[in-house]
Amino acid sequence: MRLAIAAWLLQLRLLSRSPFFGWMALLTPLVYCSIAAMMSDGHASTRTIVGAGLMGAWSTTLFGAAEALFMQRYSGTLELLVGAPRSLVAPVFGFSLATVTLGVYSLVAAWIWSVLAFRTGGDGGDALPTVIAALVSMAGLVAVGVLLAGVYVVTRKAMELTNVLEYPIWLICGVLFPSSMLWPPFVVLGRLIPLGWSTPALDLPLGAEWGGYLGASLVLTAVYLAVGVVLLRRVDTLARVRGTLRLR
């Protein structure tokens, strides 16, 4: 736990000293929120604001996890992590947590921006189930970040993978608009991701159906975390066998 906290602080420090990432993290939720609010004629619902915030959070998680591992490999510090006696799980969990910390900022920034720029803070009526669903979504993002990090250790194509994944995932997970608007097979694909279960709950009031979606999301989050941990324990060996820790 101590190492995970150290990695969390390290990553936040590194991100805070990267002007590009800092500006991206700052502006992305504002841009997404503006688009969402304008598409709703300036009357954004809580659901729309949270959806826009989650879009920013997903981008941050994806780029954060990719950049964290890409930069570790690029700067040669990935070997420091792998060559240490501790498992990779704790530092990677810390890195993932750092990017989700920015994701939480994304949610809050989206809400503040909607109040300041569009004079709307959401309808407020069923804010509680929406906020809980958003928090469950954030937990899912941590799990996805851990799983992606394991993949990124093994492959040198982290940034390419990131670019491919960004938009399709939040579309098929119904982050901004309900996935029921999509072709049904995409909905099934979305349900393979924790976010694909937690986002439908954003549209539901407290109740059994709402709880069912969030329960499924939490189960999938646990599965992702477990697979991510197993993968991270194995990638250590795999990367040593393949010799993929350095950039060529």
């Binding site: 390290l10 420090r13 590194l14 000293r17 990267s18 700067s75 040669g76 510090t77 070997e79 420091l80």
Partner: peptide, 10 residues
């Protein structure tokens, strides 16, 4: 050795 392997921003 070399330029790599350190957190340059820290």
């Amino acid at each position: 050795g070399g330029e790599r392997g350190l957190y340059d921003r820290l």
